[in-house]
Write a protein that binds this DNA or RNA. Sequence first.
DNA 1: TGGTAATTTGATTGTATAATCAAATTACTA
DNA 2: TAGTAATTTGATTATACAATCAAATTACCA
Lengths: 196, 196
Amino acid sequence: MAESFIVEARREQIINACIDTLEEVGYVKVSLTKIARKAKISTGLISYHFSDKADLINHTLIYLLSNQLDYISERVVGKNTATEQLQAFIEASIIYQETHYKNNIALIEIIFNAQTSDETPYYRITDEEEEDHLYMLLKDILLEGKNKQEFTQVFNADAVATIIQGAISESMLKDLSKVDYNYSHELIKMLMSMIK
Amino acid sequence: MAESFIVEARREQIINACIDTLEEVGYVKVSLTKIARKAKISTGLISYHFSDKADLINHTLIYLLSNQLDYISERVVGKNTATEQLQAFIEASIIYQETHYKNNIALIEIIFNAQTSDETPYYRITDEEEEDHLYMLLKDILLEGKNKQEFTQVFNADAVATIIQGAISESMLKDLSKVDYNYSHELIKMLMSMIK
DNA sequence: TGGTAATTTGATTGTATAATCAAATTACTA
DNA sequence: TAGTAATTTGATTATACAATCAAATTACCA
């Protein structure tokens, strides 16, 4: 359907304006008026395509998460050993942050501010249904490495996956370009001495 | 001065009401009216004691940070070896999160939302003047351990300090009580195999 | 080409907000 | 005790916002 194409293009345009505005002014000051101005459309048009502000934010979150997941998993699959996969996972995660700065800021702004309809902030949700795909991918790599005897140290895969995710997130908040060492490289080196 | 005492007590009361309200409704929905209601005072009184909303948030942030720093450093000093100090640092950090849940939520809400007068979010500030006291404490422990040959592996203290801070922050977002392993214990074990 | 449905506008409505301030109350001092 | 300063109230002001909707415009099909 031609209409479906127009609708999809418009929705994506609005989502991108939402990302830009989030990066510029932050979640607290984001408004439909500002998003509309950024997209050069009227405010009513946003309401036509999204049921309300929360709906727009939700779709923006989904868009950002799937972008990030695609980028990283593309670079992990195809690697043969768990060691190479783990290395690719870390490198891709950190490079994604550097090359998709705007997306990352928008993601942080949403995760630390948006709330579900029952007022629970997203960051306080414990993934009951294991919906954190990146976490699952990471844990699978660790378990596979254990199975195949690539990683010979005794370690708890959940704990190590959490440590790795934390180490990656933390680097998001530091300006790595202003640092005199290669964080990605250091992190991989340290990790290997932990599990190999 | 008697007035100074009253003023200090009132300011602390308002700061505590601010923390409670942040934890309950989140930064986006926090308002002077709600904080005043929580403290059972009028809105005007907040304006009398703080120049504006940003000023109140700033003082609340300072209060939260110094509380956390005091708690952790109290448990680190007195330990004799760098190994013990590092262990105490990690244990205290994680226990603080579990026992001061409300403070931690309020801290997250502020750091990921408040902005300086030139609109820069706090979390995007690169600590130019090394004002992150916890980071400095952690890095000092690592360097001391290196100096005293307690930590014999080759490692970059900045990178490892960042990894540790990330691993601790990440655990803040997981409900550790719903996990079947001792994260604090696993983290320390993994770390020691990295640096010892 | 004409007509219907989809898309888009922008003005309007109701609500929440931060900050101000005159007036009331309380604390302190001489 | 009287008077002055500090503290506190709550109504008011100005501003920003999300959501709605009638009207205008555009796309599509027969």
